[in-house]
Amino acid sequence: MRNYWLLLKQDRVACVALVYLLVLVVIAIIGPAFVDPSLNRMQLTARHAAPFHLNRSWVYFLGADALGRPMIVRLVLAARTTIMIAAAAVLMAMVTGTFIGLIAGLRENLLSAALMRGIDVLLSIPSLLLAMVVLFVLGAHIGNVILILTITRLAVFARTVRGESLELRERWFVAAARTMGAGDIHVLRRHIVPLVMPTVLAIAALEFAVIMLAESALSFLGIGVQPPDATWGLLVAEGQPYLKTAWWVSLWPGLAIASMAVSATIVGNWFRIANDPTLRVRLTPREVTA
């Protein structure tokens, strides 16, 4: 952890991005607890209140939506749902895809071939089309959105982990462990999983941005999360009819989506570099040992 901290200090952009992500996560977790429920109700007298007017309450500093609800409140409430969906989908895709990749990469047998052919079929189907069909049939609930985002992204983890496992299983230390009588579970737990996890975590950070953008696209198309729940993508969709008269309704959630996606991508790229010995030299200070 000390080495990671020293490496992070060498990349100020990644450091700022990580702090920004942590601030957003904290706001998403504890922010709704401090929001007065009355502020999320219709207040037609404040309909499309313009932002940056000091003659109104501070909660209207970013303006109001078509029902008079403050955009600050809407952004805070939507942040929890957006981040929760993206985090849950990333975690489920990471666990499922890593498990499939490890099983398929440990030995070349019928099960391994069947698993990878299934992954190939999944990759051949356009993810947006698959999401639209499944959500139309099952309904646009939060659980179904998480499920379909997990299914569409687990293939990335599975193929990456399988490729890493195929290479690691040929290393001399794995051969030595098998010579000493180690079984598949021991080899996976002690020799392959610890070396694969840094790559998996780097992919997870990058996939967080991809999944969040995918969820926003589904909500914008009207097949994602439905009211009364709210996500940043749904807020963008709600403001789309008023872009000429009330641009702020779509602008603020759009900026939140873009900034968080960029920050997650920067952090994921930094984590990838920090765990790659051939690239780490670009970040390594003198205090960090190789």
Rank of each mutant, 00 (worst) to 15 (best):
R178V: 03
L188K: 06
G222D: 06
L213Q: 03
P228K: 10
L218R: 01
T199R: 10
M197A: 09
V193G: 11
D184N: 15
L213G: 02
L188H: 06
A176H: 11
V225H: 04
Q226E: 07
M212N: 01
I223Q: 00
I185L: 15
M180Q: 15
A176E: 09
T231I: 10
G233V: 01
L234P: 00
F173Q: 11
V200K: 14
V196T: 08
A214E: 08
L188F: 07
L218T: 00
A177V: 08
W172A: 15
I203M: 15
W232P: 00
W172I: 14
A204V: 12
R178I: 02
I185D: 14
L206N: 07
A182G: 11
G181W: 15
I192P: 02
E207V: 02
A177K: 12
G183S: 07
V196R: 01
A214P: 04
L221W: 05
T179L: 15
T231C: 12
E207G: 03
P198D: 11
V200C: 14
T199M: 11
P228Q: 07
G181R: 15
R190F: 12
I223N: 00
V210A: 06
I203L: 15
D229I: 06
G183F: 13
L188Q: 06
R169T: 05
S216L: 06
L234S: 06
R189L: 12
A214D: 08
A205Q: 05
G181C: 14
V225E: 03
I223W: 00
V210M: 06
F208R: 00
I192A: 09
A176K: 10
L218D: 00
R171E: 04
D229K: 03
F208V: 02
M212A: 03
H186R: 15
L201Y: 12
I185T: 15
T199L: 12
I192E: 04
V196D: 00
R190E: 09
P227Y: 04
P228W: 09
R169G: 02
A230K: 09
W172N: 13
L234A: 07
D184Y: 13
L195E: 10
Q226P: 02
L235H: 10
A217D: 07
D184I: 10
A209M: 02
V200E: 14
D229Y: 08
R178H: 05
V210W: 02
W172G: 08
